[in-house]
Design a binder for these strands. Structure first.
Lengths: 123, 123
DNA sequence: ACTTGACTTGGAGTACACTCCAAGTAATAC
DNA sequence: GTATTACTTGGAGTGTACTCCAAGTCAAGT
């Protein structure tokens, strides 16, 4: 799969795909004989993981660190486990923060809806 | 309340508090006779809202836009309602994305836990 | 009067995550 | 054999959100 196809598949620019690789967020992608990237299923899995992590707001550095540990082999298993647990914690906190803000937003939105109906502000 | 006290209360630097004001994320703060900021309850509410929104990842621009509309008066009620609804949508999407990543992380973490127990990778 | 300390400002600097670009290569189309 | 197209690279540029700094003001303490 070419970088162009992968870009379309995941809805992400080719530049970003190359950037992710440069940043170590995914291991070096398989190359065709002419030097062009030729994404294999494995590469695609890494891309999918990277995009998923980034979309949820996890920093590039943490994901790259995971890839480094992965490439270092089995001796890093517990470190990788720790790293993933840390990221899980970050996301759980982030989720709680979002819930808090959503509650706050809902209260405000409700007030605007009352105002829209009655023509009056309720606060 | 001085900027230093507010900074401690919310666990945010004085620089960031001034930046939030400069960026229009909170309306101009009440000043003491010497020109120093003297946060009133109202100002503190705005600060709390701004921090809450930022902590959940909403961009500064959107919050500043809300403040602008608020300052423009009652004629912007429906616009403000719309803006808050948009931000709510953003946060809901973000939450879903986090849940997706958490699921993915949980699967990976489980595999590492099995590996830690059995000494073998399960994939 | 002078030092100290807490604040003020505008503006410059930093970190992060892209995003864009110029110059080059490699394979196909005519 | 040359034009076109799709890729390659290193490096520079952009936008966001801080973060830091220098120079100045103001009030209180000695």
């Amino acid at each position: 799969m070419t970088i162009n196809e992968v870009s379309k598949k995941f809805g992400i620019t080719m530049d970003t795909l190359r950037y992710y690789e440069r940043a170590g967020m995914i291991p070096p992608v398989t190359r065709a004989s002419n030097g062009n990237r030729d994404y294999q299923e494995d590469d695609l899995n890494w891309v999918g993981l990277a995009i998923c992590m980034r979309n949820s707001g996890l920093p590039v550095g943490g994901i790259a660190q995971y890839v480094r540990l992965y490439q270092a082999g089995d001796s890093t298993l517990s470190e990788r486990h720790q790293l993933l647990s840390d990221q899980k914690k970050i996301l759980q906190d982030q989720r709680n923060q979002i819930d808090e803000t959503l509650e706050r937003l809902n209260i405000k939105i409700a007030k605007y809806e009352i105002a829209a109906k009655t023509g009056k502000l309720s606060w």
